[in-house]
Nucleic acid binder design. Sequence first.
DNA 1: GTCGCTCATCGTCGATGAACGATATACCCC
DNA 2: GGGGTATATCGTTCATCGACGATGAGCGAC
Lengths: 127, 127
Amino acid sequence: MSDTPPCCPPPRDPIDGMPDDAIADAEFAALAKALGHPARVRILRLLVRKNACICGDIVDELPLAQSTVSQHLKILKDAGLVRGEIDGPRTCYCVEPAALRRLSALLDALSGCAGASRPAGEKAKEE
Amino acid sequence: MSDTPPCCPPPRDPIDGMPDDAIADAEFAALAKALGHPARVRILRLLVRKNACICGDIVDELPLAQSTVSQHLKILKDAGLVRGEIDGPRTCYCVEPAALRRLSALLDALSGCAGASRPAGEKAKEE
DNA sequence: GTCGCTCATCGTCGATGAACGATATACCCC
DNA sequence: GGGGTATATCGTTCATCGACGATGAGCGAC
């Protein structure tokens, strides 16, 4: 918790009519959903611990079939939490620290807006 | 992995033969799964913003049926992210800050342990 | 070229999730 | 006690997830 930016992050890119909160909700939910399975958390932990890992090593570490692990890796990659680089016949996976930081920031924004600082003038969207 | 850097939280209650990492994985995954739906993130944000909220207000705020919202609230409550107090004929929900802090700690432990076991001193906190 | 290895994708099956309407329960007010 | 409101739960339907084995595609070694 070093330099905590102002409570709520600035508005992101407006997609259509969605308020930025809804965008943040969707983004947060997508990241959380990708981490909503113990195997995927474990994969992420493995990658963090070794900084990078061959897919085969991950398969070797988990009690799951290779295709299942590949599926989980795809989900993590689609969520942007992990990056895969093809290295010859194998694929080297590594975590995407920015995604973890982003998730942490979203979580801070979610819980931080409550107890930490209570701005007197809430922004829009209120009743 | 024998040495426990100051970053990683102390071991939790050992359930059966599970290593504490597996427990943390399961706990993290359970919390993340509960937040893996935009409606639930939105509910949590609502509760955080108003600090507490009657179920009816939440139903009023979301484009979902009352039963669906109740289901989402149950999921959040089962995950320990939310607490519901029966207040006369209605139910008043409020966030459980400890759960959010716990999630934040688990997330830090996940991404932070990388920096700890890495020789480099990057704490991944700067933007 | 061919073989062997590594990984991704496909197809399938059972389990779970998400949504709804209908119904049951608890409470306050009269 | 009866009526009205607020919430939880039940049962159903459709979509998605999680797991697997089998197959296909890319690459290095021979």
